[in-house]
Each structure stands twice: as structure tokens, then as C-alpha cells.
Nucleic acid binder design. Structure first.
Lengths: 338, 338
DNA sequence: CTGAAAGCGCTAACAG
DNA sequence: CTGTTAGCGCTTTCAG
């Protein structure tokens, strides 16, 4: 898959040197407008387009950024991808997308691959908060890296994320306003920063004095995976108990879908008997019956910010490390009463 | 994001010429085993990895293939992506993935982008059967192209897809076996080959003698989009009619989810009153209540075949154009009773 | 089997 | 403002 026309051809057709042709083609400031016009004409006549590899080899830039997400089968991540892609397209750049398949090993390989391809920067949604660190830190040595949505303790990487504590607070406040006096959290093991922060926020909200940590004092939490199956399993555990809680806060929509489906199977009516609220505001949550109340993060703005941080850092390598936190908002739908 | 170590460094460290180093690194047949060993050692000591761009510039190959899908927010397509990606990883190659955002214009841009990046081949799931053709034909000029799942009338492109007529036949046969004597098809306008073929198959199945085409003879069909909203809308139209059909065949799971949700809202019990079957066997269909009976295509095998066709063609440019059709199978779940 | 040297296509010095 | 020239890092003739 190759392009035949080269700068030399364009230069010849325009009757100038390759240097002038190149300058005209890259909108270099100092070039006679008339020459420039001729070159551009020749270029489009011949259907010229610069060889990406020759240019990259020379300039050490690729006008491409790389992105690695934990799973491409996840609404929330693909929304982030689309937002980043749009942002880049607006500045004439493109994206190489990689899927880590929820595996730290694959993630490391993909990061390595993108670094080899000399992407101008890397946006990573890390698979885990800890095991993903080595690969990320290695990438940081080579160029700017921004962590998106999930944080990892990798030195030198900027971060753009949502305020999980606030999002969870909104869930709990909303449920209480709806009259829920007992609330259970169904989330994921704290292997990602988001799972950790949401769970922590829930615990803290359940012990308002911030004091005693004795059993029964804080609201109970069930921790598993970010998956439909875990939502099902956790709900079965709740159903097996003496009484159901008035409200359930889920760590992600995919879990909530499992919860809703299992509650319905058991004949429990949502939101009348139990109210369910969740996190992500994904496509999925709008397909359920009842539709899910869910915390929405401003993913487009977050994506734009991630690209901006990348650009800042490729300017000055020594820029201080930054965290940029966005406030989420709860979108209320039928699953919490209306 | 650059690598510092070059072949020259490796050659120096191993005490050989760059030519020998290069040969050893690329497993060239004619190179003294002892030299080779020294080079490989030096290479790993220095943490060498070849500059992708210099190599591509020289060899005109990138060990990368490009893939363009209509939407990254679609289970079925992301399953195809994962399958292709796995297949490539097995042969040490990688994938650049692009999202056409359901737009023919974006699709054309992305195809152009990938061609410029000199991918060794292109796998495209076209946005439409007709408007996508020019961009694809242009790509065919530059290198091997395989259409996956959806066909488009682009000269020179190979095709790997499922047998939609057979899949639809399985749906209809199954519904009839379940006692449905009236069946409606809810699908998409024939802008993609899959929508076209499924609708056509349905029509032909409803007129068993293949003869008269008068109104009322063939089963009725509602055509809209591949979307949740269209499933909702079509179902409202059905509910507004005198009687509901015994069975509904949907053109895709996403439509079926809209259908199921609207039927439930109206108090119609699936599968007791109406049976619903669909196409794609996506993740989505396993989350509904009742779970969807759906036609499953062997996407992994199809992906592997797509890569194989690509490789065949990059061997001999004049290879005859091929279509490779895979048989689907219906996965029966609760939405058609059991 | 190995080395010297050419050059993939491009842009950036450096002269003019 | 324009042209000449060097070279990014790699592979591959072409000689030896």
C-alpha cells in the first residue's frame, strides 16, 4: 500500500527545488506566494501526499497519539475513545487505538508498541492501579503520558479524571432524599482507582462522624468485579438475606444491569421496593427497564483536557505533573423513583 | 517518543558491520551463527528495537494492517476487532483501528489515512453497500482489501461474511416450530448488504412458491435503522395494529432490545404472547429479560479467514477475487420459549 | 559469509 | 526567498 508521487515529482512539475516544494507543502513562512501556489497546484494535480514514514524519520514527530483502554467492549471507554478521536481530528492528528483486553501483560505490550511507533503522546486508561505502573513509567521516559479516568501511581504521568467521591456522595444523598434509610454498595474490588475511590467514599459517607469503624456502623458493601455476572451474584446474596436494603448504589452500570435483572427475576419491583443508582451513565443504562439513574462524567471535556495536557507537556518536558479533576452529575431516571 | 539505540550501536557493540547486524536481526539465512549470537546479545544488552519508520521506508512494509468499522459502539464490531487483533498478534503483526462513526465521509478519510500509513492490508466493514464503494476501490488500487461481514460492490476486494439467507431461514423455521403462524420482520433499510439480504430472505421465505408478489402474500416487514429507537418505534406500530404477530424476527440485537422493552412496557409477555428472535448473538442479548434467541456467526473464524485472504493477496496481486461465506447458527434462549 | 555504500522520501541546515 | 546538500535509521545490492 504505497504512494508513488514524491516531493521530487512535485518539485519538478512546479519547476522548483525539492526544498522549496517541501517548504510550500508544509506552509513554511518564508516562501514566495507565487511559488507556493505553483507547488500546491502541482501537488494536487499529481495527487501528492507526503510519505508519513519519511517525514516521521526526519522530524521525529508523527502527528499521531496512542491510546490504550482496558477493554474495547465497554461503552464508557469507547465514549472516551470517540471523544479523544474527535479532539485530535480537530487539530489534524490521528489516533492509534489499542485494546488491553483487561490484561496487564497485553497492556504493557501495547504501550511498548505505541512507543515504538513514536506516537507523540499516550493516553492510557490503566487496567489496574498498581500492576500497570511499570509499563506506564517506561513510556513516561519516552514521551508525554496522560492517564484518563483511572489513576495509577506512575511517576511523571499527568491525570484527568472525575471526582468519584462527589459522584458517590450524589448517589447517597439522592437515595436518602428518596427515603432510603438503608443502602448497600455493590462495587468492584479496589484494583482500579475508581473502584477504590467509590468504595472509600461510600464507607466514609456511611460513618458521618468519621469515627468508629466497628462492624455494622458503616453501610455494607459487596465487592467483586465490574461485570454483569457480579451484579447478579451480589443481588442473590442480598436476596438471601433477611431484608433487602432500600437502596443499592452500584459501582458501574454493567453491575447495575445484573442487579436489576436479578431483582426482577425475583419479583422485586424497582424503584418501589428497592431503588438502584449507578455510575457511568452508559448506553446500557438507557436500555433497561426501568432506566437507570446514573452518574455522568463530562467525558468529552475530559478527553479534550487530556489532549491539552499532552500538548503542554510535549512543549516543555519539565512541566510539573498535573491532576485535572472534573465534577460529575447524577442523571435521575426511573430506577430511583422519578 | 523515540528510541535511541540504532543498528549502528548494536553493530559496534558486536564488532561487526551494520549490514551483518541487520541481517542477524532479521534472521537472514546467510549469517554465521556465532556472529548472529553476538549481534543478538548486543541487541538485547542495549535494549535495541528497530525504528519502525526507517524500516518501513526501506522495505515498504509495516507489519501492520488497518481496520475500519462503522461504529466502535457496537458489540458485534468490537468482537470482530478483537478477533482480528488476536489473529494478527499470533503472527507478530499489529492493528490500527479506525471508527467511521457511521459516516461515509469519515470512513473515506480513515481509509485514506490507513493507506497513507502504508498498512499491509485493509479490513473494512463498510458503512453502506453503495456509498462506501469509491473509497474502497481507491484503497484496492494501493493494496489488498477484505470486506468483512458487510459486502460492498467494490471491484477487487475480497469478502468474508455470513450466510444471511440461511440465518434468517433458521429464525423463521424455529418460530414456526414454536407454533408461530404469523411473523413480522423488523429490520433496517437495505443500505447495507446484511440488511438487504436478511430482508430479502424473509420475503422469499414468506412466499414459499417463490411466485406471486401481491400484497398480503408475503409476511410483512418494517424497515428502519439498526437502532434501539427503531425497535421501539416499530413495536409501537405493531401494538397500534389489530392483532400482534405470533413471532417477530429482528434484523439485529440492538433492534430486538428496543422491541422487548416496548413489549414489556405494554404488558405483552415474551415468549408467551409473542416470540422474538434476532441476529448477532451479541452481549446485549444476554442481558435482557427474557434473554434473546439470536443468530450467531462464527466471528473468530471469519476474522481469521479475512487475515488469510489478505495474506494470500499480498502474495500475488493478480489472485482472483474471492467470497468466503460462513454458516451461522441460531442460539435458542428464552425469548422464543423453550 | 561479510562489509562498503547506496538510497527509501523527507526536511533542515547552510549558503547564496 | 531559493537551491544544494546532508542525513534521519534501516535494508539491500554489489563486491570481495
Amino acid at each position: 500500500m504505497a504512494r508513488k508521487v514524491t516531493v521530487r515529482d512535485v518539485a519538478a512539475a512546479a519547476g522548483v527545488s525539492t526544498a522549496t516544494a517541501s517548504r510550500a507543502l508544509t506552509n513554511s513562512p518564508s516562501v514566495n506566494p507565487e511559488m507556493a501556489r505553483r507547488v500546491l497546484k502541482a501537488s494536487s494535480d499529481l495527487g501528492y501526499s507526503a510519505n508519513v514514514f519519511a517525514r516521521a524519520l526526519r522530524t521525529q514527530r508523527t502527528d499521531t497519539i496512542g491510546m490504550v483502554v482496558p477493554s474495547i467492549n465497554n461503552d464508557y471507554f469507547t465514549a472516551a475513545v470517540e471523544a479523544v478521536e474527535k479532539e485530535l481530528a480537530d487539530s489534524g492528528r490521528s489516533l492509534i487505538l489499542c485494546d488491553a483486553r483487561e490484561s496487564v501483560e497485553t497492556e504493557a505490550q501495547r504501550i511498548e508498541l505505541l512507543v515504538q511507533r513514536m506516537v507523540d503522546g499516550l493516553i492510557v486508561v490503566p487496567v489496574t492501579a498498581f500492576d500497570s505502573v511499570p509499563a506506564i513509567e517506561q513510556a513516561v521516559q519516552q514521551g508525554p503520558v496522560v492517564l484518563l479516568d483511572r489513576w495509577a501511581d506512575a511517576a511523571g504521568a499527568d491525570y484527568v479524571g472525575g471526582d468519584n467521591a462527589d459522584g458517590l456522595r450524589q448517589c447517597v444523598v439522592h437515595l436518602r432524599e428518596q427515603g432510603c434509610s438503608s443502602i448497600v454498595y455493590v462495587g468492584a474490588q479496589p484494583r482500579t482507582s475508581t473502584a477504590y475511590e467509590r468504595h472509600k467514599a461510600f464507607r466514609e459517607l456511611m460513618e458521618p462522624d468519621g469515627g468508629a469503624d466497628g462492624p455494622g456502623v458503616h453501610g455494607s458493601a459487596l465487592l467483586g468485579e465490574f461485570s454483569f455476572e457480579w451484579g447478579v451474584e451480589a443481588t442473590r446474596q442480598l436476596l438471601a438475606g433477611d431484608v433487602l436494603p432500600h437502596g443499592i448504589v452500584c459501582g458501574a452500570d454493567i453491575i447495575a444491569v445484573g442487579v436489576l435483572s436479578t431483582l426482577r427475576e425475583a419479583g422485586v419491583v424497582v424503584p418501589d421496593q428497592v431503588k438502584v443508582v449507578s455510575y457511568d451513565d452508559s448506553f446500557l443504562g438507557r436500555l433497561t427497564m426501568p432506566r437507570l439513574s446514573s452518574v455522568r462524567q463530562p467525558i468529552d471535556a475530559m478527553a479534550a483536557e487530556a489532549v491539552r495536557l499532552l500538548d503542554d507537556r510535549s512543549g516543555r518536558t519539565d512541566a510539573p505533573v498535573r491532576k485535572s479533576i472534573f465534577m460529575p452529575s447524577l442523571v435521575v431516571r426511573e430506577s430511583t423513583g422519578r
